[in-house]
Simulated assay, not measured.
Amino acid sequence: MRHILVFLSIFLVTLSASSSFNPKTYETPLINVNDGEGEIIDSANIVLGSSGVVTHSFKNGESSIIARAVVTQKNGTTAKVRFEVFGMLSQPALPVPGILPKVGDKVILNFLYDRALIVVPNKEIYDQVVKFFPHITFIEPDIMGAFLSMNNKPNPNRDDFRELCALNSAGLIFIAMDKEAVFADCGSFEILKKFQSGEVSYYQTPFYSNIKEISTVFWKFDSAYIKDYNEHYRYLLDLE
């Protein structure tokens, strides 16, 4: 219990000092497009690795999302974005617009950054994180656990989390590990904000939820239990 309290006290102090993480939606037109990349006006609201969407306005006044945009560079004056397929449109019932981004189309960054998946090792940390970020709607971890249970995936990978983000209209993922926690973009898995924290006393894998056990199946080569919580999520986040 003492270790739990130590973690929470340090974790709370760190979050209290860093809880300014509140990315605002930023809209700007494309000012240049070249070979799968675009250029926009830079802003303090833009973080490297953050993402958004590109929208195109039609002659009838309607607009549609035509691509995903990921920030790859910024210099204080302009920023570069890489265009990708917007995964949330990859559904049989929703035809993907056959339109490429062009100058004048609108880029909306920090898209769905008010909704996040939450991956934490225990309930105490879950309660504290939710309390410290009231402006973010965290997806109920039981929903995530049920999804993994249905798919026999006790060791979620990036694609699993991307699918969960798409299903729940979330743009961020919060992951708490031993001595460190992060907000990352749910598509690129680029870290947008880091927090230093204390030691974790106990873990539930793959993360805290009321879904206590997720079964494996022998015919799925990628179905296995997580042996080390921290190692698993540091690997997904490309942390050394």
Rank of each mutant, 00 (worst) to 15 (best):
S90K: 15
L12F: 00
R158V: 13
E27G: 04
L117H: 01
L8Q: 07
V107M: 05
K194G: 01
K24C: 09
Y229W: 00
A116D: 04
A170R: 09
E124T: 04
G198Q: 11
P156C: 11
E37I: 13
L15F: 04
F58L: 07
V70M: 04
F133H: 02
C165T: 00
Y26G: 00
A166C: 09
F21D: 13
S169T: 06
Y233Q: 13
K74S: 13
S215A: 09
E37D: 10
N152D: 04
V6L: 05
I226W: 15
E39S: 04
F189L: 09
E62S: 14
F195E: 05
E240Y: 10
K106F: 00
S51I: 11
L112R: 03
N60S: 07
L109H: 03
A44D: 03
Y233T: 03
N122Q: 10
G49W: 15
L48R: 14
S9V: 03
P121Y: 09
I173V: 02
A176Y: 06
G198N: 10
K194N: 04
S223C: 05
V54M: 12
N45S: 15
T137R: 08
K74R: 13
F207Q: 01
V85G: 09
V47A: 14
V119S: 12
Y229A: 00
F138W: 06
P134K: 10
S149N: 00
N152R: 07
P95F: 14
K131S: 09
I10H: 01
L100Q: 14
S201Y: 08
I46W: 14
N155F: 11
G87N: 03
N230M: 09
E124S: 07
T78M: 11
R115S: 08
V103C: 05
Y235K: 08
W219F: 13
V70N: 04
G104D: 03
S57R: 11
D185F: 15
I136M: 02
P101H: 05
A17S: 10
V182D: 01
I211C: 06
I143H: 01
L167F: 09
V120I: 05
G104R: 01
N45W: 10
T216F: 07
Q196R: 15
H135R: 07
S57L: 09
G49Y: 13
L192N: 10
V130Y: 01
P29V: 03
L172E: 12
K102M: 14
S209C: 12
T25V: 10
P97T: 08
N210I: 01
P134W: 08
F207Y: 15
V6E: 06
I118H: 01
F161Y: 12
F221M: 05
G187C: 05
P156A: 06
T55M: 02
P29K: 03
